[in-house]
Design a protein around this nucleic acid. Structure first.
Lengths: 214, 214
DNA sequence: CGACCTATTGAAAGCTATCAACTGGGGTGG
DNA sequence: CCACCCCAGTTGATAGCTTTCAATAGGTCG
């Protein structure tokens, strides 16, 4: 289940100053668990390409997808030297890993991570609003708008790389409720579903109103 | 409503190198809104002392308290140069503010903020799990444990500086549900309430089981 | 002591979860 | 190449939890 396709070590000898020496790039297939919640947190990671989700579990098995990551986003954060979340690829992905000690040595890296932490923290704030205060329909509308921002390539058809269960775990719902919400959005003409995982937003205005602007 | 008690500007001339010049300390009373969501984001702030809550609003007025901050925590984050959240003091507080440009000039500041961003992001991940997957009773238990970690001063009696409404907005519930949860915890003997805002945790083991470890 | 605000408690409604059956598409194997 | 199987998704019915609406209690401050 845990197959790493390729691992390339960075070329420290060729690099000038200010570039961290101990980093490496990984090519990972889709649906691979890169990190396990609770494991000792040795390295910090960045998504270079592809999509990654971070998940947390309760002792009884309830799961929450706490964050969806794309290129530039950082993960592998630690609480008491243990990874706070598991990380699983949603698509084939390229990931860079850094030793945690590199943060002190490499100001450029630290600065880049700082910027991304700020952005990710803002996204988490929005997500708290979604999880705490929005209805099921609003959550799904918000989710789709978030995946397909204003100016989007591909003629407006979005390929979902998540199952209904994964979307549900992200939005704090059940898969049935997510499915019903998709059907309701379709029924109202706000979206069209080519297939279960191919969505087109038909009425962005109404979607934004549902999602509480955005 | 928006009363700033005192503002002391840092003493840049006395400082040696590596200390940001354009920072200032604010003394703020309780229940003061320090930042408004949507305002132009000029400065980044740190809590020195006291407690601050960050809130977000939906267009129809639904509110979510997205984060609770204590000493060392950072706020004033921006999305498109506008503050992503409002910030309101829960207690009298001391706050340091920095110009955003100081982040590039002052590596010590950047490094400190980086560490705190990481911690706050981890807390947000936990909070997503709470908001997405926990029942009302579990949320309140989690909340109380979070406010009163293992080794705590004061003989185990905690003073809540939040109203039921604020707790509800933090936990994604209504104030009535929060009140019922408190009553249920009391009924089960897990907590004792001296007054509505004075809590003693009687059975930490059961609380932790409810909150999903922690 | 009374006014006012916060908190508590009760009853009913509403939304989502749960349980269950059915459908459809993709892949495998005959 | 086609049939079958299997898994993801959809849809329906019911239960359960939280919200909503409403009335009461408690505490603080003037």
């Amino acid at each position: 289940m845990r197959q790493i396709i390729e691992e390339r070590t960075g070329s420290p000898t060729r690099q000038p100053a200010f570039v961290e020496p101990h980093c490496s790039n990984l090519r990972v297939a889709a649906h691979v668990t890169v990190l396990h919640e609770g494991d000792p947190a040795r390295r910090i990671m960045e998504v270079v390409e592809g999509a990654v989700m971070l998940t947390k579990l309760l002792p009884d098995g309830r799961r929450q997808v706490v964050e969806l990551l794309g290129p530039g986003d950082v993960f592998g954060l630690a609480h008491d030297d243990a990874y706070a979340c598991s990380a699983e690829t949603l698509t084939p992905a390229t990931i860079t890993t850094h030793e945690r000690s590199a943060l002190e040595r490499d100001p450029m890296l630290a600065s880049r991570l700082l910027r991304h932490f700020e952005a990710q923290l803002c996204v988490m704030h929005s997500h708290a609003l979604v999880l705490g205060r929005m209805s099921a329909l609003e959550r799904v509308a918000f989710f789709l708008l978030r995946l397909m921002p204003e100016g989007m390539v591909g003629g407006g058809t979005l390929h979902l790389s998540m199952t209904r269960q994964e979307i549900a775990d992200f939005l704090g719902l059940t898969l049935e409720t997510v499915s019903r919400a998709f059907s309701e959005l379709k029924r109202r003409g706000l979206v069209a579903l080519q297939r279960a995982d191919e969505v087109r937003i038909q009425d962005r205005g109404s979607m934004r109103r549902l999602a509480g602007a955005l």
